[in-house]
Design a protein around this nucleic acid. Sequence first.
DNA 1: TTCATTTTTTATCATTTGTAAAACTTTCTC
DNA 2: GAGAAAGTTTTACAAATGATAAAAAATGAA
Lengths: 187, 187
Amino acid sequence: MTIDQILDNIHPLPESSKQTLKQCISEIELPKRTILLRADRIEKRIYFLKQGIVRAYAHTPGHNITFWFGQEGDAVVSMKSYVAGQKGYEDIELLENSILYALEAADLQTLFENDIHIANWGRKFAEQELVTTEERLISRQFRTARERYQELLENNPDLIQRVQLGYIASYLGITQVSLSRIRAEVK
Amino acid sequence: MTIDQILDNIHPLPESSKQTLKQCISEIELPKRTILLRADRIEKRIYFLKQGIVRAYAHTPGHNITFWFGQEGDAVVSMKSYVAGQKGYEDIELLENSILYALEAADLQTLFENDIHIANWGRKFAEQELVTTEERLISRQFRTARERYQELLENNPDLIQRVQLGYIASYLGITQVSLSRIRAEVK
DNA sequence: TTCATTTTTTATCATTTGTAAAACTTTCTC
DNA sequence: GAGAAAGTTTTACAAATGATAAAAAATGAA
């Protein structure tokens, strides 16, 4: 997944604006188990995932709760840091050796103020994340864990292969034991 | 709550841009029980709530699920329509006689293309809705229904007075019977 | 490979939550 | 204010889920 594909997929940009934006983006490679973003920091960078898989989890008393998985092409961002300049809820951990595109949030802010195309690109970015987040919320509210597991099996069977089931269970909001029961039924 | 307060609260705008935007906004008054937005339509208008209270619910087999309440100052929008031009998930119903500020999404789109301040205002709008939605998702994933009811009692006691408990129970993701049990304990 | 560690599944039991029905309370209408 | 309708609480029972422990399977390192 190239950076051009990722940028264009959010919203097409005129060539000159795209070049301007790309000049602020660098590619980095990081090993499995790296904690890319931390809940207790105000994160200054945003990332796009070229290769790899990541999970976002919150540290809660007793155990950590995984609430998002990112895959190739996804933006990896502490939204609370990016939008409000405040500490987020999530640690984000690389579950595989990964390649990321990195971008300073401050650089992006400057571009927003000076280039209307980039401002609208940033608007589209937030809007798309908004709809995705809303869909996650609705999936969680409308469907049982069993249904959401089946949804995952159909729409994203990769994920279940690449991620250990304890994290999937946490993501679905059930215990690993319950997920095992569901898998025993469904298979 | 004036339209100026609502607009400025999202992101301050230069006076000329604000005037431009306000020229597209009209005030309307609608009675209780009006269905303002419908899941089976692509909605062309967005609203801000001056006075009243609304709920968003999805029609699911068996019963409707309430997943959002809007109060004074909130944007009332079918995000799927606004962002993606597709049918949304929700009907939005006025629970009280209400006064709303209305705006054609198409007019707003035109302003986005031509005024960088309005484009950044629109970006901020989406970003704020994003963080709010993320908070709702996380509240739902991290906390039990009991905790979320107590959270509501503390942060928004009004809501529980103004909205019938069946809707609150649905919003919390439990049955009305369970909510009754929780209330019996907490009181 | 072999052994140790981690992950997943299975079993049992206790707790929570849902369903259904009835009783009670509040609100609305005439 | 009386009666009807709508909303809320309570009860009893059934079903689903969680906690815990232990077994089985998979993974990783030497």
